Amino acid sequence: MKIVIADDHAVVRSGFSMILNYQPDMEVVATAADGLEAYAMVARHRPDVLLMDLSMPPGESGLIATGKISSEFPDTKIIILTMYDDEDYLFHVLKNGAAGYVLKNAPDDELLSAIRTVHSGGTYIHPQMATSLVREFIKKDSERAEQDLFNGLSQREVEILPLIAKGFGNKEIAEKLYVSVKTVEAHKAKIMEKLNLKSRPELVEYALKKKLLDF
């Protein structure tokens, strides 16, 4: 497989080139010192895999270059090489089209495994970062579920929910909205049912989380 290495440190490019060229199934066809040069090398050689450093001043950053290259050369699989075990970096590069995320201090075997994995169509994420990705996915899934429940409320229920959370009684709410107390009670029951809430403290917590209270 043909590989391009993009890193602003010459010693890093040389070191990785030696490791990869020693493999019978890999060949480093070009190296680059910044994002612009990486783009040019990919356009010229159409490599199977691009190893991309995120921070490459001066010139274009690895993150911007990753987005451009993944969009224009989808057959080139991009693996991010970085010192940052930061989940924000991970989410950004995955959204920008990267297929792998490897820390520079990872063992050589991990880098080789990552290259072969993405070349075969898979995704490789450094193990400790994979945990962050799963945690964020679960969080986002939970937020989407909550939003779906909230969207199921009627306009009147959306008006009543924060009033209940602020501590207004059924009679006070009825007077504010010019409806009967029984109507308020019915809406309150519907709100609790639709949002899967069991008590008023849970409703208050929900309203705070959704930023429905403007104290």
Rank of each mutant, 00 (worst) to 15 (best):
D85F: 00
I164T: 10
I191D: 05
N105H: 11
K210T: 01
K140Q: 08
E27A: 12
Y178A: 15
Y39K: 14
A10H: 09
I115E: 01
A186I: 06
R144V: 04
S113Y: 12
S142K: 14
A6P: 01
L20G: 00
G67I: 13
D88G: 00
I164Y: 03
P107Y: 00
K2S: 15
G59Y: 05
M52L: 15
D108R: 01
A98C: 05
D148C: 05
P47T: 04
A38G: 14
V179R: 06
P74D: 07
A43G: 02
I191F: 11
I78P: 05
N96I: 04
D88A: 06
A106M: 02
K190I: 01
E87C: 09
V11H: 12
S17N: 00
A99V: 03
Y39I: 12
A38V: 10
L20S: 02
T131W: 13
A130R: 14
E159N: 13
E202R: 11
R144A: 13
F137K: 14
L153P: 02
L149P: 01
K176C: 07
V134G: 06
H92L: 09
M56I: 15
A43E: 11
M56H: 03
F215V: 14
K182F: 06
Y84Q: 11
S154T: 07
K209I: 10
D85V: 04
D8E: 14
G62T: 06
P127S: 15
M52W: 05
D25Y: 01
G100I: 08
E87L: 04
R135I: 14
D8L: 04
S113V: 09
A98N: 09
K139C: 03
E72L: 15
P74I: 14
M41I: 09
Y22P: 00
E159R: 08
G167Y: 03
I5R: 08
G62I: 00
K211I: 12
A32W: 08
S120Q: 11
K77A: 12
L90G: 04
T82C: 07
E136R: 15
K140D: 02
K176I: 13
D109T: 11
V12Q: 10
L213I: 15
G121S: 11
P74F: 12
F150G: 00
E159A: 12
H9M: 05
K209H: 15
Y22F: 10
G152R: 04
A65V: 11
F150N: 00
K190Y: 15
I64H: 06
Y89G: 01
M1W: 10
L90R: 15
V158L: 15
L197R: 03
G62S: 02
A207R: 14
D85W: 05
N151F: 08
Q155Y: 03
Q23H: 02
F168P: 00
Y39H: 10
L112T: 06
G35N: 05
K171I: 15
K166S: 12
V179L: 13
L90W: 07
E60P: 02
L63Q: 14
E185Q: 11
L197K: 11
A114N: 05
E143I: 06
F215R: 14
E146D: 10
R13E: 07
A145P: 05
